[in-house]
């Protein structure tokens, strides 16, 4: 009989009914949260914990307290890496205006424009490793195109990657190539959504050129600019592949960035100082947190204001 089954089911249901409003989102989130805690949150705390130990990854770990940090703040290589990270952050930002410029240039209806757009986007599609190799050949002493060019212009070639003062700029230039393409794509999609009515109206009001860009177009591109800045900042802070491929941190450590120095100390052939590597990771995490919290704060604020 159906009626006989109803009472227990209904009591079950009523509990579910009472709670499903707040429970359902958590149930849907649960797998994601579990993964996030396991693979993101807990390693962060493990790194913090590990940074107070001296451990080679094999034997016993010994507690050294803040020893790793004290050593770190007295380590010339750390400051070199930190300074290089600052250079990366500042110069990588050039990708945003450069991407915008190319996007505006490409945002027109010409025959075959799709082909040009994809060609400009190409550097972002190929792997960073390939970009690194291409640029190392470009800069290579004796036979590189760039070396030859400088030699032809000035008489003596400059081997960018062998010069401790220039090497970081050389690597950043290589990194900018794909990053500009990335920002360009973000702006191109943004430009598709710029409202033609407003442009029309602005034109009637006599806006042209830079004033049109600054007062009419850019405000409408705010979401695209925000994303472009975020990915560029994160890209600059986690720059690792290019440094590793192009110079391996050299010459004598002058192109190292924090993420590379951390890898070198903790995991490379001559490293295996897990605690010291973790201490560098913690510092890098703190720097990233400054930016990430800034971004999150801005996003929350925008959401409240209803953008």
């Amino acid at each position: 009989m159906p009626t006989a089954v109803v009472p227990p089911r209904s009591s079950n249901r009523s509990w579910w009914r009472q709670n499903q409003q707040w429970l359902t989102p958590w149930l849907f989130l649960a797998p994601g949260i579990a993964m996030f805690v396991l693979y993101v949150i807990s390693p962060i705390f493990q790194s913090f914990w590990l940074s107070f130990y001296d451990w080679d990854g094999l034997g016993e770990a010994t507690w050294v307290g803040t020893g790793n940090y004290i050593e770190l703040f007295d380590d010339g290589a750390f400051y070199t890496s930190l300074w290089n990270n600052v250079l990366w952050l500042v110069l990588y930002m050039l990708a945003v205006p450069a991407g915008l410029g190319i996007a505006i240039f490409l945002n027109q209806t010409v025959r075959g424009i799709r082909l040009y757009k994809s060609l400009f986007f190409f550097p972002f599609v190929i792997s960073q490793v390939v970009v690194g190799l291409m640029f190392s050949w470009f800069y290579a002493p004796n036979f590189g195109l760039f070396y030859k060019l400088i030699e032809w212009m000035t008489g003596t070639g400059v081997a960018i990657l062998a010069d401790p003062d220039l090497v970081t700029y050389g690597i950043i230039a290589a990194g900018l190539w794909p990053q500009i393409a990335y920002c360009m794509i973000l702006y191109l999609t943004g430009l598709n959504n710029v409202s033609p009515d407003q442009i029309e109206a602005a034109r009637l009001d006599g806006a042209r050129g830079f004033r049109m860009l600054w007062y009419i177009i850019l405000p409408q591109l705010r979401p695209a600019t925000f994303i472009a800045v975020v990915v560029t900042v994160i890209g600059a802070l986690r720059s690792f592949d290019l440094v590793s491929i192009m110079t391996d941190g050299g010459p004598f450590g002058s192109s190292r960035v924090l993420s590379f120095y951390m890898y070198e100390q903790a995991l490379s052939e001559y490293g295996y100082r897990m605690g010291y590597g973790a201490a560098i990771a913690v510092i890098l995490f703190m720097i990233m947190m400054v930016f990430i919290s800034g971004f999150i704060w801005k996003m929350v604020r925008d959401e409240k204001e209803g953008y």
Binding site: G250, F252, G253, E264, E269, Y270, G271, R273
Partner: peptide, 16 residues
């Protein structure tokens, strides 16, 4: 290993 790495960086720097 650690000394080797630092030493070799030093030798490279000295030659530059």
């Amino acid at each position: 290993a650690e000394m080797a790495k630092l030493g070799m960086e030093g030798f490279q720097e000295f030659m530059v």
